[in-house]
Design a binder for these strands. Structure first.
Lengths: 187, 187
DNA sequence: GCTTTTCATTCACATTTGTGAAGAAATAAA
DNA sequence: TTTATTTCTTCACAAATGTGAATGAAAAGC
């Protein structure tokens, strides 16, 4: 819980006491590279916090892996649509490096929220931030050309290029690996 | 409040009493076609519910209007990033038809939330739904070609084509008006 | 270490979308 | 109604991105 506790404390000012209570509801889990936190078609029943490693979200469209997000240390992973609406997930969430995560079951979240109301605020803020971020990605996909999207990512999240294979980055940018190579070669 | 009250009752099961209390915090407002609910550069300080009419969200990028969303009756309009983080809005929210909206000031929302805790749930669910929707739009922009995005919109929200000018729809789809015409001509 | 597999690059050509101009059609204003 | 304005369509050509194949580089497995 090396990262979770400081995260809860500095971003949401939970008390020592609340943090301990929350911490006791997480189960820690190791995932090897290429193992899955969630597979498409399955029901997402929990939320996890990344202590170490990174993950991609992807869906299969027309037989191809289409990446829609990355997650690193201090990020949460879960699939909203599946978790909230009890539907099978369209998305896979897969470890790209060996990872350590802290997992909480959805039923425990509900119980815990009753004793610590501020958890509701955490939930709200997360959703609002995800919405704002997703809006940015959509705006870039609609309004910038591939080369500009590449440069934006390179400037804003350079670590992505250190940790994620290029063909996944290409997919995230909405282009083919060959096109990403072409763009990089121009520089 | 012809639409707001049934909306609150059927989607969130607020009580008669709560609904009256909430209703008293809204101010109704008429906007003519082409008038703005929010202008880019201004601070968004309220949330509104659409009783009648429709709106577009757009930002200016490289001198061009880039539409990122539409809103119709029973939708809310506000700009999250500006409202939550107290920053100037990047987006304009503009009436496309003469409209009737119910506006609530952000300070009243906070006050009201204290006396009606369930409002927190409304806020959370809205953000979560917006996130899910925004994710879908981003996925389409990244993974479908313009023609497929056009067909998806035509199937899922046909009313858009009845009420929104095509050049705004083209922008929302991430293409130029000429390209949308070309796609339509093929059918 | 060697071998196999995965990933990245390059190329020629195909397809999709953008661009600017022109005119037609629809809508709003007078 | 007439006129002006806005919106939509079409076209020829340009630019961006996709496609499939070939090759090389890097990483993983043995």
């Amino acid at each position: 819980m090396n990262k979770l506790k400081p995260y809860l404390q500095s971003n949401f000012s939970f008390s020592e006491n609340e943090i301990e209570k929350m911490a006791s509801c997480f189960v820690s889990k190791s995932l090897k590279k290429k193992e899955y936190f969630l597979r498409a078609g399955h029901y997402c029943k929990n939320v996890a916090f990344i202590e170490k490693g990174c993950f991609i979200y992807y869906e299969i469209i027309a037989g191809e892996e289409k990446v829609c997000d990355f997650a690193f240390e201090n990020d949460w992973i879960t699939q909203y649509n599946s978790l909230l609406n009890n539907t099978p997930s369209q998305f896979n969430i897969c470890a790209i490096e060996n990872a350590e995560i802290l997992v909480m079951d959805v039923s425990k979240i509900a119980a815990l929220s009753k004793s610590i109301p501020k958890i509701g605020m955490l939930r709200t803020e997360l959703a609002e931030n995800y919405f704002i971020e997703s809006t940015k990605r959509a705006s870039q996909l609609a309004n910038l050309k591939a080369e500009e999207r590449y440069e934006t990512l390179l400037n804003e999240k350079p670590e992505t290029f250190q940790r994620i294979p290029q063909y996944h980055i290409a997919s995230y940018l909405g282009i083919k690996p060959q096109s990403l190579s072409r763009i990089r070669a121009k520089k």
